[in-house]
Nucleic acid binder design. Sequence first.
DNA 1: TGCAAGAACTGTAACGTTTCACATTGTGCC
DNA 2: GGCACAATGTGAAACGTTACAGTTCTTGCA
Lengths: 376, 376
Amino acid sequence: MQMRYAPSRDHGGAMAMNDKTPPDENADQAAGGEANPPTLKTIAFMTGLGVTTVSRALKDAPEIGAATRQRVQLVARQIGYRPNRAGVRLRTGKTNVISLVLDTEEQVGGFVSDLIYGISEALAQTPYHLVVTPYSRNNDPLEPVRYVVETASADGVIISRTEPDDKRVRYMTERGMPFATHGRTHMGIDHAFHDFDNHAYSIEAVKKLAALGRKRLALLAPPSNLSYYHHMRDGFADALMEHGLSEVPFPMATVDHSIEDIRKQTVELMRRPNRPDAFVSGAGAGTFALVAGIEEAGFRIGQDVDIVSKQSSKLLHLLRPQLYVVNEDVRLAGAELARAVLGRIAGRDIGALQSLSKPKAVEAYETPGSGKDDTT
Amino acid sequence: MQMRYAPSRDHGGAMAMNDKTPPDENADQAAGGEANPPTLKTIAFMTGLGVTTVSRALKDAPEIGAATRQRVQLVARQIGYRPNRAGVRLRTGKTNVISLVLDTEEQVGGFVSDLIYGISEALAQTPYHLVVTPYSRNNDPLEPVRYVVETASADGVIISRTEPDDKRVRYMTERGMPFATHGRTHMGIDHAFHDFDNHAYSIEAVKKLAALGRKRLALLAPPSNLSYYHHMRDGFADALMEHGLSEVPFPMATVDHSIEDIRKQTVELMRRPNRPDAFVSGAGAGTFALVAGIEEAGFRIGQDVDIVSKQSSKLLHLLRPQLYVVNEDVRLAGAELARAVLGRIAGRDIGALQSLSKPKAVEAYETPGSGKDDTT
DNA sequence: TGCAAGAACTGTAACGTTTCACATTGTGCC
DNA sequence: GGCACAATGTGAAACGTTACAGTTCTTGCA
């Protein structure tokens, strides 16, 4: 698949061998050596054009003749030309990078993996790279964002752990940095986001528990500074009201607490006289702790207590088949978030870049072997 | 914290206002406007030096006077100078990027999150960014690596899912790309790695099961193409021999299979006449499936069957307290891997960049509340 | 025929950095 | 006094790209 350096097409006008200098020592005709990666200059030399023309031709600029354009693009493809990221970035400021800002204390459960995979998938067919920018929950969450903005080290940012009044959102909006949030805000700023509908989730969860005849419900909620705390809590409260159920407050535990803490708090809660007879849980890992605490206090899931839990992995039914679960597709969330930032970067309308993922129905355990068993 | 542009220190020789042009419109003395980020030129202008001198002074080059060096560094610090990554990269080829190459079908369990957090932590105090380069298990694992090498888009690479004869290792070694592997190889190539000692792990696991009086053990192993399959299997076999136990083959399930598949296979295995009375499991998520399968077949953990399992999260004891676990610190692995690549990039000796993490002792469930209870 | 206008292409400069080869001192030594 | 030589600093060029301001043709039209 060898391209000749001075094509003899008698097609465009002056095609005489010109004096353009070949890029460095590439002149030794592809002698099987360690050829440096081709640049615009390489293509310019091969086609006999100027680098400006080549640059333009590759991005379909209108002032380049159709024949030339095709010729350049053909050559570029043949020799596997890839624009040098540093060159582009230096000249234009465009980094082709999306920064995912992550809290490194994030709870277990594959949440982060799935998010990253989802984003990666969406970015795969684009020139964008994904860089992970971590921060510790103890530090200012604004700091990593400020870093990215100040150093202009990404074209777009994805953040999670969104708060109702989120300074990162305000900051990036002010600075004009495209971004998308995992979770919504309530601060009068319109921005791209993807969110799981936790309001609907807790309504469904309560409905399920009501149908099971449960009366006194506790909520294992997110930390109260996060937006989805409010969504989940509001849905919970609304549904309690609607079904005439009461809440057993459980303020000492959130999904951010350690497994150990949640377990302890649950034991304590269950030993109270007015213990709950059901839980709605905001996170899979937390549910592990809930179950442990409940059983340690001497009660049984599905009998004394029912639990509806969100989960992003599929492990809960293996923990206790009696659990009711709602699956949250975090991988999808990642893909949506990527789509959203890319949209913002491309200048698309914010309205089109906001999505809410409705929870599926509450699932009970489906006894295995009920499907077709293929062997023996 | 305002720096004057023409400092009046009568210290170094000629300090007269020179003709060097101020960088773009920064000349309007920090008028509260959107000042562009400072560059070498900015510092050169402020100090009255040439950009070459400034560049040298900042990297402690020997041909710069101590006084000048300090002066430059002071100014740089004051105005918050950060080298422009694109500039450096274009000029030197150095990207200040570490690429983590990940299989996006990776099993659940927070493995990836922890790895990333570990790496991030180690990278935090360096100029390095972490970019995640995904690939699908269906595609050629060499492809993402080739991409990184060909486009020189990172200074170093971390790979996992290492095979005994790993073409990625060969490729990167040939191309001189610094890298570290999560897992060892056996191909006569010396390279940086971090690994968990799975050989020791399965020996400990078998020992534990032997002590419990178990006789017929099955192994939920990694897929046989991966290096640690052999380590784990060899340790398993050695220990069986030593303790005079026998193996019940369990070849139809590996830790890479879906939860569902493992569960099914386990049920089938347990219904055989010569069912195992114990398992050694290579992964936490797999153990969930094992437990489900065992119980579905009508047996009880801790009674009819014992299991020793590796885990990276801390959930197994909440699943069944009767399980025996060995914790694998993946976050540590991440940090070690980062240290290792950085070491390779710095040209350090390979020998110093190989580490093996010994398993801790096999842990039984510690009944909660046995420690100090602080409330009530 | 002359000329304006368009089409097609080009060179130069710039982004911020480092490297190279060179310039300007002052200093020690004979 | 002259000279070599450190010590210290310097401008220019280059990395690969794109934007700007031309330049060279061809073509249409008065």
